[in-house]
């Protein structure tokens, strides 16, 4: 079966073409936001057509960051899905509006192709109440649709499933306690029991949690208010600073990627690396407490090649505290890229 995977971002559109499960082409269309999704998808169509992917009616899978509680699983793209997207648009206006535009363009550019939407948040729809609830009044939570989400659910779910499969093969016959570490531009750690997430570091938005390439991650809420007030940035300015100028780049003082920070020998990256690894250590310990111990550690994400740096720093601490089962010291890598994970959802139709 041929599959075309589309990952719309803020400025660009990533795409990949698959014949059966093998990737045949992959790339990025720049200026996606500027030229609009229709023009970008026309370009993708031309490319995949040249690769022969349209000869056999392909499936199309579109990546969505946020689907809210409306989308606990991938769905077929159609009138019903679009209506449901409109219902969640209020909760994540920028992402969902862009996704709706892309979805409409997919229907025009790939008419008749079975298309699906797959969301990062679906895996976390059933996050336990104690984990997903903030300590504010239920009225306020309801009004703002306020709750914790994870934003790398596709990686966590696939990586945890793969880890569980390997553990079963080794003879573990109870639901495995998995520490899932996603190394991406905005890294995220989840505790997964069997196939169900128990904790996740991100929050109502991807801003909370571990520091990312430009995201501050967790800070005292009083600091956010002080940035808006005393520092004179206002709420929008403070948000822009926390999302776009902080995190690892803010610590280093120049724009950096996560893999730069984790592997660079440059002095200016040392502090950022230490802060990131420290926060990962705390998040891993919290996840271990949530699970009551860890049977397996699995890494995934765009920068999965940097797993060893994190593993060598964090896992000995878990081991020393006693929270790591002996076999878990042999951490696992789930190396499949996001495009491949999404392509799999097409085969699940």
């Amino acid at each position: 079966m041929n599959t075309v995977v589309l990952i719309p971002g803020r400025r660009s559109l990533r795409y990949a073409g698959f014949v059966d499960s093998g990737e045949t082409c992959t790339g990025t269309i720049r200026g996606f936001r500027w030229q609009g999704p229709r023009a970008a998808l026309d370009e993708v169509r031309t490319i995949v057509q040249a690769m022969g992917l349209l000869d056999d009616a392909p499936s199309v899978v579109v990546h969505g960051l946020f689907g809210g509680e409306e989308f606990p699983a991938p769905v077929s793209l159609g009138k019903d899905a679009l209506l449901r997207l409109e219902r969640v648009a209020r909760q994540s206006p920028l992402h969902v509006a862009s996704l709706i535009e892309t979805a409409l363009a997919v229907e025009q550019v790939f008419p008749g192709a079975p298309a699906r939407l797959a969301f990062e948040t679906s895996f976390f729809v059933d996050l336990p109440l104690r984990e997903r609830t903030y300590a504010v009044s239920p009225d306020l939570s309801h009004k703002l649709a306020l709750r914790r989400w994870g934003y790398h659910g596709l990686f966590h779910e696939s990586a945890a499933r793969e880890a569980a499969r390997r553990l079963r093969k080794r003879g573990l016959d109870c639901p495995p306690r998995i520490l899932s570490i996603c190394l991406d531009a905005q890294p995220e750690i989840a505790a997964v029991l069997g196939c169900r997430p128990i904790t996740v570091t991100s929050g109502a938005t991807p801003l909370e949690g571990l520091p990312g390439e430009t995201n501050s991650g967790e800070i005292d809420p009083a600091v956010a208010l002080a940035l808006a007030g005393e520092a004179g940035l206002g709420p929008e300015g403070a948000n822009a600073l926390l999302v776009g100028e902080s995190g690892l780049s803010g610590l280093v003082g120049r724009r950096v990627r996560l893999d730069d920070v984790l592997t660079s020998t440059r002095n200016d990256c040392v502090r950022a690396r230490e802060v990131l690894l420290y926060r990962m250590l705390l998040a891993s310990g919290a996840a271990a407490a949530a699970l009551g111990g860890v049977d397996a550690v699995v890494f995934s994400g765009r920068y999965v090649s940097c797993s060893a740096v994190v593993a060598h720093d964090v896992l000995p601490h878990l081991e020393r505290a006693g929270a790591l089962a002996p076999q878990a010291a042999q951490w696992m890598i789930f190396a499949k890229p996001l495009e491949g994970v999404l392509a799999e959802t097409a085969s699940l139709q």
Binding site: Y134, A135, G203, L207
Partner: peptide, 11 residues
């Protein structure tokens, strides 16, 4: 409240 997503504080 304790820990809270900073984006929520700004909202």
């Amino acid at each position: 409240s304790g820990d809270l997503d900073p984006a929520v504080a700004l909202t």
